[in-house]
Design a protein around this nucleic acid. Structure first.
Length: 482
RNA sequence: GGUCUCGUAGUAUAACGGUCAGUACAACGGGUUUUCAUCCCGUCAAUGCGAGUUCGACUCUCGCCGAGAUCACCA
């Protein structure tokens, strides 16, 4: 396959929300699977919306997902610099060429005048187009006034790799601003120049740019540039309503999900498959598999809703996949300290690994680890009502409950080797000697040692807690009942 | 309002013009010695509407309806 040169070109106006990252994932996959180049370009031409630190956040997010760029900030490349503000002269030169060719003009019209034009047209109920008000006399360009494109409207047809053959009439083509009065280019102009300079073969971006395509095509023509391939990605919709996901509606940032304990593997997998599938029934994809299977032609052309529940399901799948395929230690190494209960600090790594090993398959997000594992690290708050009001245990008298706990405690304390196997044998034996059903006896023990809504298999829980702690908790629970 | 796009269960999706419209998440029910989870089994649930082309339409054409995007010196 021909080597693809793609780019992700965010503007540093804040965090990247989940609706945006996908337009980094697909370009990355396409570039990597063709042994091409993935470029990160920072479109920082809007000084007013510039947010300090946003570039770092963007870089951090891409790196977290494993989307390493081949050219861009920090590492440079043959087309450096990769910040548009540092490429200011380049755009200006191209704009001047267009002026010389009669396809652009400096515009000294005051903004109040422009507002008037807009109002007039609106009042007349005709579409406002600046080209209808194009000034007659020419002005020499100087910083402080903008440069506009001189539109020559016509019909355009083009091919979009996702949408197919598209066309649009002259209605939307206008004298768009190329260079703003501050001397910096607009997105509309800058991205075309940069994509050309950087040899970008596939322009992959959200569908919202579709309606601007005729203006872009006019620009390619006026500049004498060949068209790259266009790839319009459908929107990712917010959980409620039909609007596209946006920060205004509280779209979470990718880093928010990292804080919740979503694994990057799961996030990448989920987003890649939101609006794309390979035609099989596979749902879990590693990066390597995505690289193998991804194709532009199977990108969906309708919007897809972001479903946090499914992301959580997928994260659970990934937690188990990593544990089962790569091992408990690998999963452990991926869990940041902050996901553990504070009290876990005092425990050796071996113990924490043991705890993880028996509770990992219950985790959907890593942040659940705190509450799921707390009783392994600190003494639970004894609440006799959890036992007395339990729907099975409430059939037993309080005397019987405490005597059962004492019996269990006594028998467990006699165990020579405190192992999973021995514990299971003794627990089975206790079922027989007490004549209780598992639902009764095991529930009782489980609650007495954890006071948690749920816990792993009983023998594993007791083994991890250790003999002394188990006995102490059983005795304490027994006393609390009467 | 102009222009452009989209329309399969609640959600994400599959289906050379040809099985009973498949799968996954969710929901609901059941099974695996306690709970929660995993795992397994099952249930519910969809081609927006109307014409046309065709032996046959989710698929092609047209109309309607619905939804979205965009119309900035923002990207």
């Amino acid at each position: 396959m021909e080597k693809a040169v793609t780019r992700f070109a965010p503007s540093p106006t804040g965090y990247i929300h989940i609706g945006n990252v996908r337009s980094a994932i697909y370009p990355y996959l396409l570039a990597k699977q063709t042994d091409g180049t993935f470029i990160l370009r920072i479109e920082d031409t809007d000084q007013a919306r510039y947010v300090e630190g946003a570039t770092d956040l963007i870089k951090e997010t891409l790196l977290w997902l494993g989307l390493n760029w081949d050219e861009g900030p920090d590492i440079g490349g043959p087309h450096a610099p990769y910040f548009q503000t540092e490429r200011k002269e380049l755009y200006l030169n191209w704009a001047k060429k267009l002026i010389a060719a009669g396809r652009a003009y400096a515009d000294a019209t005051p903004s109040e005048k422009i507002d008037e034009y807009r109002k007039e047209d609106t009042a007349k109920k005709i579409p406002y187009l600046y080209r209808n008000h194009r000034p007659t006399e020419t002005t020499e360009w100087h910083e402080g006034i903008p440069i506009r494109f001189k539109a020559e409207p016509k019909n355009y047809t083009w091919v979009d790799e996702v949408m197919g053959e598209l066309s649009a009439g002259p209605e939307v083509q206008d004298d768009i601003i190329l260079i703003k009065k501050d001397g910096l280019p607009t997105y509309n102009f800058a991205h075309i120049i940069d994509d050309m300079e950087m040899g970008v073969t596939h322009v992959i971006r959200g569908q919202e740019y579709l309606s601007s395509m005729p203006n872009y095509l006019a620009l390619y023509d006026a500049l004498g540039l060949p068209r790259p391939k266009f790839v319009s990605l459908p929107h990712i919709l917010a959980p409620q309503g039909n609007k596209k996901l946006s920060k205004r509606d509280g779209a979470k940032s990718v880093t928010d999900y990292r804080e919740d304990g979503i694994l990057p593997e799961a996030m990448l997998n989920y987003l890649a498959c939101l609006g794309w599938n390979d035609g099989t029934e596979q749902e879990i994809y590693t990066m390597a598999e995505l690289l193998e299977r991804f194709s532009l032609s199977r990108i969906q052309n309708s919007g897809a809703r972001f479903d946090e529940t499914k992301l959580l399901w997928m994260n659970g799948m990934w937690i188990r996949k990593i544990h089962d395929e790569e091992g408990n230690d690998v999963l452990y190494s991926k869990i940041n300290e902050k996901f553990w209960p504070d009290s876990a600090k005092d425990y050796p790594e071996e113990y924490r690994k043991k705890v993880l090993n028996i509770i990992y398959d219950r985790l959907k997000a890593l942040k659940d680890l705190k509450s799921f594992s707390a009783y392994f690290f600190e003494e639970p708050t004894v609440d006799a009502n959890l036992i007395k009001n339990n729907k099975i245990l409430k059939k037993l008298s309080e005397d019987e409950l405490s005597s059962l706990l004492n019996t269990v405690s006594l028998r467990l304390s006699e165990i020579q080797d405190w192992t999973e196997e021995n514990l299971q044998d003794v627990l089975n034996e206790l079922l027989e000697t007490t004549g209780k059903k598992p639902a009764e006896l095991f529930s009782l023990i489980r609650i007495a040692v954890s006071f948690a809504p749920f816990s792993p298999a009983l023998n594993l829980t007791l083994e991890a807690l250790g003999r002394e702690r188990t006995i102490a908790r059983l005795n304490l629970a027994a006393r609390s009942i009467d």
